[in-house]
Design a protein around this nucleic acid. Structure first.
Lengths: 108, 108
DNA sequence: GTCTTGCGCAACCAAATAATTGCATATACA
DNA sequence: TGTATATGCAATTATTTGGTTGCGCAAGAC
């Protein structure tokens, strides 16, 4: 567990998506979340760690418990990509060269 | 290469997102796509295969070439999830029980 | 104080993923 | 017909992922 930590990758796992919905509905602790899944507390904790690393959730330590909150703005990154994608599809974008140079920049 | 094949997982890989943008801009063949990346043709082909399996792109065989087209409707699945997520965040959704039973159904 | 609870951290493991390499096949072109 | 091109398929490999188990450490409960 180490490398690519972006929102897209975080959303790829169905358990993590479920966790996000639960936190969105009600700020919760790792233990409380784990009870909702068949996996262990540690497994859930790792998922939350990934969600925290890519800033989709933030922690609030309160006593010996940790409450997780949603950072909704991070989802905008996904929205932005989809919007860009849709725009290209819709306009049948023919400035291919422009797109290619954009992609090259992103790779660096 | 076998299991989970959904749109979220397909979008998790940055190369696949780039491929999608390229196809969106201009229907293309595997060979033409491979030239835009440093990876081999086979590597790109596998990515396209994944994108095809989850129906984000469709094939059109023409002679010995294969042209790929975008199936934009599949992206709606992501949109829908984000919309659901946003709705929960915005309303601070307190019918937690309802959400929990929804999640349980989805797991089956 | 002692005990229990709520966590994180590290080691470990099985399975999935991404990429390579080599080979097969079908179409175009000379 | 023979050769080059465009592609898929299968086997192999390194890395990443998702999960488990065991340990340790604070913060409340008694």
């Amino acid at each position: 567990m180490k490398a690519r930590r972006d929102v897209f990758q975080a959303l790829a796992d169905p358990t993590r998506r479920a966790i996000l919905l639960l936190i969105a509905a009600h700020a919760t602790t790792p233990g409380a979340l784990a009870e909702e899944f068949q996996s262990s507390r540690q497994a859930i904790s790792k998922h939350i760690q990934i969600l925290t690393e890519c800033e989709l959730v933030k922690q609030e330590k309160r006593g010996r418990e940790i409450y997780y909150h949603i950072n909704a703005r991070k989802i905008d990154e996904v929205d932005k990509w989809i919007e860009q994608f849709r725009k290209i599809v819709d306009t049948q974008f023919n400035q291919l060269d422009k797109l290619l140079s954009t992609l090259k920049k992103q790779r660096k």
